[in-house]
């Protein structure tokens, strides 16, 4: 019986250590910054909710990164983009379109993926800066991508 108990603990430890994901990137202040012009926009992106696993983030169907307890950013042209975040085991958890209209603006998105609530909020800059400063930067596989739908 004791053997089974220790075996259970061992597997639990393995599971948790395998799931837990600690970001080792630079802090918000030390992280590279997006090049903002009068023609493009910057989109900061982070993920809340259960942070014990990585969430693959896709933009317009292209895999950007596996986002853990960190943040990333993209330099985009104004337009409509599709975001998809997968949950544990790669299961599609959240998918939505977002319109970015104002050139030169910085957008802050925080998406929650958990059993308690799934959704995505656009944060005010003041709130966003406080929140993002507690996170580490993660580099995506691309910094820019063409819009899914061009604005008219």
């Amino acid at each position: 019986m004791r053997f089974i108990f220790f075996l259970f603990l061992f597997y639990l430890f393995l599971g948790l250590s395998g799931c837990a994901y600690f970001v080792r990137g630079p802090s918000f202040d030390e992280a590279p910054k997006p090049k903002l012009t009068t023609e493009n926009i910057a989109v900061y992106f982070s993920r809340g909710g259960m942070l014990a696993f990585r969430s693959p983030l896709h933009i317009n169907g292209k895999h950007a990164l596996d986002l853990g307890n960190g943040f990333t950013w993209f330099e985009l042209r104004p337009g409509i983009y599709n975001f998809q975040i997968n949950g544990a085991g790669g299961v599609e958890a959240l998918k939505f379109d977002k319109k970015f209209e104002i050139p030169g603006k910085v957008y802050y998105l925080n998406c929650n993926v958990s059993g308690l609530g799934t959704g995505c909020d656009e944060l005010e800059e003041k709130t966003a800066l406080k929140y993002f400063k507690s996170k580490k930067y993660m580099q995506p596989s691309f910094k820019t991508i063409e819009p899914k739908i061009e604005l008219e």
Binding site: V91, A93, T118, K148
Partner: peptide, 18 residues
């Protein structure tokens, strides 16, 4: 902009598409 109810693997959620 269209808002609709989408079915995930375990639950449904409100989402949108342009």
């Amino acid at each position: 902009e269209l808002r609709f109810l989408a079915s995930g693997h375990f639950y449904s959620f409100n989402t949108n598409a342009y």
